[in-house]
């Protein structure tokens, strides 16, 4: 019985990273906030590098609540798009597809988004990880958590519902 040779690790990484890069580079608002993504396998971590422009309370100072909310929404939408596209990307035939030009899936639309502000966002980098709790044909529910210095001390969390593209 002949067994297929496994894909070289470099090709796998390049495919995943290039798709993720295209997904985030194509969205002006992600660039405007300066949100970056780190990938470990299929796990994404969103990073919001600190900039003075993100401040909403100059006395404390603290990151603008709207910015925190926006960061969490960006992390949620990216996770949802990424996790849905993952199967397409990893279902074989990867070698024949040119992932630098393959069309990306349309984006889900936010139906509602509820943010719980647990602590002020300090003037330093913030991180977020989102988890898709349910992804149906039409709707998805996503939970996202954000922290700064300690992973266990969240400064904000949110739940959102999204309309999946047709």
């Amino acid at each position: 019985m002949s067994r297929q040779r496994p894909e070289p690790v470099q090709a796998i990484k390049e495919r995943r990273d290039s798709v993720l890069r295209r997904m985030t580079n194509s969205i002006p608002y992600i660039q405007f906030l300066g949100v970056e993504f780190e990938r470990r396998g299929d796990e994404l971590t969103a990073i919001l590098p600190y900039k003075d422009m993100l401040i909403g309370n100059p006395e404390l100072p603290a990151i603008h609540g709207g910015v925190t909310s926006a960061f969490l929404e960006v992390a949620s939408i990216t996770e949802l798009t990424w996790s849905n596209f993952w199967e397409v990307m990893e279902s074989g035939g990867g070698a024949e597809t040119d992932w630098s030009t393959e069309p990306l899936p349309p984006l889900p639309k936010t139906i509602d988004f509820t943010v719980d502000f647990l602590r002020p966002g300090l003037p330093r980098d913030a991180y977020a990880r989102a988890r898709v709790n349910r992804s149906g044909r039409r709707y998805a529910s996503v939970h996202v958590e954000a922290w700064q210095d300690n992973r266990s001390r969240l400064f904000a969390q949110a739940t959102g519902h999204f309309l999946m593209p047709e």
Binding site: P28, S69, A70
Partner: peptide, 27 residues
């Protein structure tokens, strides 16, 4: 503002920018 676009296919503003406006106005 073109910098706030959340969907490059349509040019629609990102929900995050709307949440900044809502939070500021509420505050």
């Amino acid at each position: 503002d073109a910098r706030l676009i959340g969907d490059p296919d349509t040019g629609v503003i990102h929900g995050g920018a709307v949440s900044v406006l809502m939070d500021t106005c509420a505050g």
